[in-house]
Design a protein around this nucleic acid. Structure first.
Lengths: 225, 225
DNA sequence: CCCGACACGTGAAAC
DNA sequence: TGTTTCACGTGTCGG
C-alpha cells in the first residue's frame, strides 16, 4: 500500500499557524493565527525566545522543492517497469538497474542489427559453387542447389524446388555426410520451397563440395511435378 | 504537477524540543561542513536544561537511510550520460529522460531488426499491428508477434521467439480460427525461431486482429527459457 | 540580500 | 513490541 498521505487523526493540533502560513504563504498572514505552540519552550528560555512563530523563510520554498523531488521520483517510478518495492531507495535502485539493462539491450540490438544488416556470410565465402537445373526448360524453376563455403567445415546450402517432399531426402543426404545443421531457413510459397542451411561437414572442402553437391543435385533433380 | 496536491488537515510540530537537540547534536559530522559548535559543552555540565542529548531512536538509522538514498542518486547520476546540473532534481529528471530515450531506442531498434528480418511485405499492409513482450527485460528477444492485414481475410503473421516448441501451439491456434495458411516461412538460428505466415481468416478484421493477436501473444508469452 | 539546494534530527505512520 | 520509511521545518552554504 503506497503511503498516501499523513492522516492527521490525532487530536494534537499544534502548528495550525504553519498550516495557515502555508495556505496563505507569502507572509501576508491575515488569517486567524491559532497561536498555539504552548509547549512552553522546553529549552528553558535559552532558545529562541520568540520561537513561537518564527517561520523560516524557506518553509514554503522547501516544501515546493520537496514536492518537485517527490514528483520526479514518482515519474521515475512510472517509467521503470518492474518496481520491487514502493520505496524511494528501491525506486532509484530499480531505475539504475533498468537503465543498465536498457543500455545493454541497446548495445546487443545494435550488434544484432549490424550483423543482420551486414549479412556477411555472403561476403565471407571465398568461393561460391552454385548450380541450376533445367534452367533451359520451359518451367521457370525446376530445381536449384547452392553450396557456399563459409569457413573451416562450414557451408551455406540453399535448396530451391517446387515441392517440399525433397526436404526429407535432403536431410538424409546431409545426415549421410555427418553434416551438422546449425541454422535452417525454410520458405514455402504456393508450392515453391526454398531452404537455406548452415551446415558443418568434416572433410576436405573440395571433396565435400563436389560430392555433396552432386548428391543434392541428384535429389533435387528428380521430377517431382 | 500541481504544487499542492492536497489540503492537509493539520500539522503538528514540536519545534522546541528538537531544535536544541539539533543545535548540539553530538559530533559524527558526516554531511555537515566545518560546523564548529562552541556550545560550551566542553565544560561538562552544560547549561542545556532540556535534554541535551535528546534521545532519538532512529538518528543513525535515518542517517544511514539518507546515505543510501544519496548513494543511489549518485549511482543514478553515474549511469546517465548527460547530466545538465549537479542537482538531485535534475539528476532524476535526466534519468527519466534517458530512460524514455533508451526505451524508444530499443523499440526502434527492434522494429528495424524486424524490418530487416522481414521484407517489403510490411509495406504492403495498410495497417500494422505489432506487439512485443517483455521489451523491458534484459533479454534482447523474448517473444514477438506481428499481425498485419494484407487484404480481405488475408493477414501476415510473424512469430518470433527463442524456442521452436511454440510452433505447434501456434498452428493449433490458427486451426482453431480456421485459418488457412497459404505461405509459411520459418527461420531458426541458434535457438531463435522466426516464422512468417500468410493466412486467410474469415471474420471481421478488427475482431480477428484483436483476438488472434491476443491468443498468439499468450502463446508466445510463455517463458521458454 | 535573498534564493535555491542540501543535510539534519525528529514525530508519526506503515510494515 | 520492534524497525523502516516518510514528510516536515530549520540551519547553513553558495551564487
Amino acid at each position: 500500500m503506497p503511503r498516501r498521505q499523513r492522516a492527521r487523526s490525532s487530536e494534537e493540533l499544534k502548528a495550525e499557524d504553519f498550516v495557515d502560513s502555508v495556505l496563505n504563504f507569502g507572509g501576508a498572514g491575515g488569517g486567524g493565527e491559532g497561536e498555539d505552540e504552548e509547549e512552553g519552550e522546553a529549552g528553558g528560555g535559552d532558545g529562541q525566545p520568540a520561537a513561537t512563530e518564527y517561520k523560516s523563510k524557506n518553509l514554503e520554498a522547501e516544501r515546493r522543492r520537496r514536492g518537485r523531488l517527490n514528483s520526479n521520483i514518482l515519474a521515475l517510478r512510472a517509467v521503470v517497469p518492474n518496481i520491487t518495492k514502493m520505496s524511494k531507495e528501491s525506486t532509484l535502485s530499480d531505475a539504475i538497474d533498468h537503465i543498465k539493462k536498457l543500455q545493454n539491450q541497446v548495445l546487443e540490438l545494435q550488434q544484432q542489427l549490424a550483423d543482420s544488416s551486414g549479412e556477411a556470410w555472403e561476403k565471407q565465402g571465398s568461393a561460391s559453387c552454385s548450380e541450376t537445373f533445367a534452367a533451359t526448360e520451359n518451367m521457370p524453376y525446376q530445381g536449384q542447389v547452392e553450396l557456399v563455403p563459409l569457413g573451416p567445415y562450414k557451408y551455406h546450402l540453399k535448396i530451391f524446388c517446387k515441392k517440399a517432399g525433397i526436404f526429407t531426402k535432403v536431410l538424409e543426404a546431409l545426415c549421410s555426410y555427418n553434416a551438422q545443421v546449425t541454422s535452417l531457413s525454410t520458405i514455402t510459397f504456393y508450392g515453391y520451397a526454398e531452404s537455406v542451411f548452415c551446415i558443418e561437414v568434416k572433410g576436405e572442402q573440395d571433396v565435400v563440395m563436389a560430392e555433396l553437391r552432386s548428391l543434392l543435385s541428384s535429389i533435387v533433380e528428380v521430377p517431382n511435378n
